[in-house]
């Protein structure tokens, strides 16, 4: 028992505290739902029992995969636009001075609130939802790419230019890798925002997707399905985050100080 849970030194294995946290939350939920038995709040056990029904259903599964596809495409588009923009801002004061006011104004605007307008332009299909995801994901990535590019050591750039490297080449081959640890911090926030905007866009433009299942079930008072979908979406978010942390570790293991975001002391 202790060998399975503890690592040398007597501390818990690093993966375990989040697992315990999840189990603890489910337990609290179960007890709460049982003791109060308020209408519309199913208990944890019957919600978990609902999961195979959703995940076993072809149509639901297809909807969820469709959501993930949109999220991935939206994230990729945002990445492709935001990283060069942020890096340029970080290396050109003039460019930053031009773009920064725009970002400052758009930063606090809830991107999902733009969905109705976007739907008027682009309809209720993929295009609107993708655009909302792109808008939601872009800002943190631009911001972190900007900060990362600004912090690049001048002398590293000088060393490269002494080797004969031109300005644009330095941006791609020195500024980009040097800013990568910071960019990936933005990406981590971006992934969570992609998930949020994905669900919200499907809530507004109900056509398909995980958000659609959730809110249609809510309309029909199928609370087990609602809660089960929340579990599915949360699990997706956690899995994506864990997977991303692995990728990040592999990409920027060279960096110091390590940008350890995971605030979980083992």
């Amino acid at each position: 028992m202790s060998g399975a849970l503890l690592r040398a030194g007597g501390t818990l294995k690093p993966g375990l505290p989040p697992v315990f946290a999840c189990l603890g939350l489910l337990l609290v939920w179960q007890l709460y739902a049982r003791t109060l038995s308020v209408g519309g709040i199913p208990d944890a056990l019957s919600t978990v029992r609902e999961l195979p029904t959703i995940l076993g259903d072809r149509e639901s599964l297809y909807d969820i995969l469709d959501s993930l596809r949109r999220m991935a495409i939206g994230f990729a588009i945002a990445l492709a636009l935001s990283v060069p923009l942020g890096l340029l801002m970080g290396r050109s004061r003039l460019f930053a001075a031009l773009v920064n006011p725009l970002l400052m104004v758009s930063y606090p605007v809830p991107k999902a609130a733009l969905m109705p307008i976007i739907m008027l332009w682009l309809g209720v299909g993929d295009a609107s939802k993708l655009l909302v995801i792109v808008l939601g994901v872009s800002l943190p990535i631009i911001y972190h790419a900007y900060q990362g590019a600004r912090a690049v050591e001048e002398k590293m750039l000088w060393s490269a230019s002494a080797m004969g490297m031109s300005g644009p080449a330095r941006l791609a081959r020195i500024v980009l890798p040097a800013a990568l640890p910071e960019i990936l911090v933005g990406c981590r926030t971006g992934i969570v925002l992609a998930l949020i905007t994905m669900i919200t866009s499907e809530m507004i433009a109900r056509q398909s997707g995980a958000g659609n299942i959730l809110f249609s079930a809510l309309d029909m008072a199928q609370y087990e399905t609602v809660y089960a979908m929340i579990l599915v979406i949360s699990a997706l978010g956690i899995l994506l985050d864990v997977a991303f942390e692995y990728v990040r570790g592999a990409l920027v293991g060279w960096s110091e100080p390590r940008h350890d975001l995971a605030p979980i002391p083992a």
Partner: peptide, 19 residues
């Protein structure tokens, strides 16, 4: 008029490429 490979700098800060 600018940097070139005929003049190689070595800085106090090392300025290595950490990646």
């Amino acid at each position: 008029t600018g940097p070139g490979p005929d003049r190689g700098p070595v800085f106090q800060e090392f300025a290595l490429f950490p990646w």
